[in-house]
Write a protein that binds this DNA or RNA. Structure first.
Length: 175
DNA sequence: CCCTGATTCGC
DNA sequence: GCGAATCAGG
């Protein structure tokens, strides 16, 4: 047939837009479409002007991505750090008892897999739920982000906009 | 280590 | 216009 050139046909672009707006990740879309890498998907998405789904993840992109491919890196310009001082918003412990079931014989397992400390694994979210003094105390137990004690959802809550700390540690003559 | 998206630049 | 490379954060 004449489909020897896998370019961004309208069908593919539409599919891309649909999947992207549907909340699918770039890698998922790439796998779905096939023949394209996740980078290609992201690149196309940006070119189309669809980017912007993520809110505060661009903090990385700000300093990153100015290199193409094995190109000489120019002296990075002094990026003006935005003094965004947002509220620390500390996570209140043991205060998230939404639907506390009093002596509930019911299962009461609406979502996620809450587990006890016995069932807690390294890759499980350690978000406290309930009072630690009661036997009802459980942990989120969801798949925690590798390297972090919480899952994606709770990580965002715990680590809200309050990461503007010491960024550069590689000062010359440090120590 | 896994994943995510953002960005730049050579092609 | 395209996407690999790179970055940074979660």
């Amino acid at each position: 047939m004449t489909d020897a050139g896998p370019g961004w046909t309208k069908e593919r672009v539409e599919l891309l837009k649909r999947l992207w707006s549907d909340g699918r990740s770039a890698s998922q879309i790439a796998a779905e479409i096939g023949g394209v890498s996740r980078n290609a998907v992201i690149g196309k998405v940006h070119r189309l002007g669809l980017a912007g789904r993520v809110l505060k993840t661009n903090g990385a992109a700000s300093t990153a991505g100015r290199r193409g491919r094995g190109d000489a890196d120019a002296p990075d310009a002094p990026i003006t750090e935005a003094p965004s001082m947002l509220a620390p918003a500390p996570p209140a412990l043991a205060l998230v008892q939404a639907q506390s079931d009093p002596t509930s014989d019911s299962v009461a397992l609406p979502e996620s897999a809450r587990v006890t400390i016995m069932e807690l694994r390294e890759f499980m979210c350690r978000w406290p739920m309930g009072d630690p003094s009661t036997p009802d105390f459980r942990f989120c137990g969801d798949r925690a982000i590798t390297g972090l004690p919480y899952c994606t959802h709770h990580s965002r809550i715990a680590y809200q906009p309050a990461a503007e700390r010491k960024r550069d540690r590689r000062a010359v003559g440090f120590r």
